[in-house]
C-alpha cells in the first residue's frame, strides 16, 4: 500500500480516495479531493494559493529543514521482508512523530512570539520621528517636567479647599 501525496495541497491520499489525472504525456497528477482537482483545472499555481503546503513552505509558515523529514520518502526499490526491521520501524515511527510534533510546536511558538518586540520598536521610532506633527519641536522636552508639577499644585489647592 502506497500513500501518495496530493499534487496540489500535498496532503496524504489514502487508497480509494481522491482522483487521478493522467495527462497525454503520461504524467500523473493525484488529487486528494475535488477541491484540489478543481483548482488544478483552473490552472492555479499551488505556490500562490495560501492554503497549500507549498505556499506555507515557501513563505516560512511551516518548519522546512529538519532531520525528521528524511525518514518518510518514496522508495523505488523493493524491500525484502524482515520481521525485526518491521518491528523496529513501527517503534521508531511513534518516536519520530513525537519529535517532529514537538519541533513544529517550538517553530510555531517562535514564529508567533517574535512580532511584539518588532512592533514596539517600530512604534517607538515612529513616535520619535513624527512627534513634531502633534507638538511643536520646542515643547516636547518641557512636556514631562510640566506633567509632574501639575498634579502637585492641584493636590495642594485641593487640600487648601478642604481645610
Amino acid at each position: 500500500m502506497r500513500l501518495e501525496k496530493c499534487w496540489f495541497c500535498s496532503s496524504t491520499v489514502y487508497p480509494g480516495h481522491g482522483i487521478q489525472f493522467v495527462r497525454n504525456d503520461a504524467k500523473i497528477f493525484r488529487f486528494c479531493r475535488s477541491k484540489c482537482h478543481k483548482n488544478f483545472k483552473m490552472k492555479r499555481n499551488p505556490r500562490k494559493v495560501k492554503w497549500t503546503k507549498a505556499y506555507r513552505r515557501l513563505h516560512g509558515k511551516d518548519m522546512t529543514q529538519d532531520s525528521t523529514f528524511e525518514f518518510e520518502r518514496k522508495r523505488n526499490r523493493p524491500e525484502r521482508y524482515d520481521r525485526d526491521i518491521v518491528e523496529n520501524t513501527l517503534k521508531a515511527i511513534k518516536k519520530i512523530d513525537k519529535v517532529r510534533v514537538a519541533r513544529a510546536e517550538t517553530h510555531h511558538k517562535i514564529r508567533m512570539g517574535g512580532k511584539k518586540e518588532k512592533e514596539q520598536k517600530e512604534a517607538k521610532t515612529e513616535l520619535e520621528q513624527s512627534i513634531n506633527m502633534v507638538k511643536a519641536p520646542g515643547a516636547v522636552s518641557l512636556l514631562p517636567a510640566r506633567k509632574h508639577k501639575v498634579p502637585q499644585q492641584q493636590t495642594q489647592e485641593n487640600r487648601a479647599m478642604e481645610e
Binding site: 499534487w7 500523473i28 493525484r30 525518514f71 520518502r73 518514496k74 522508495r75 523505488n76 526499490r77
Partner: peptide
C-alpha cells in the same frame, strides 16, 4: 520552474526519493 509532484512531496515533509 513550475510546480511538480516532487515539490508537493517535499512540501509534505518527505525526503528525496530513494531509487537505490
Amino acid at each position: 520552474a513550475p510546480h511538480t509532484q516532487l515539490d508537493a512531496d517535499l512540501a509534505a515533509g518527505m525526503g528525496m526519493p530513494d531509487n537505490g
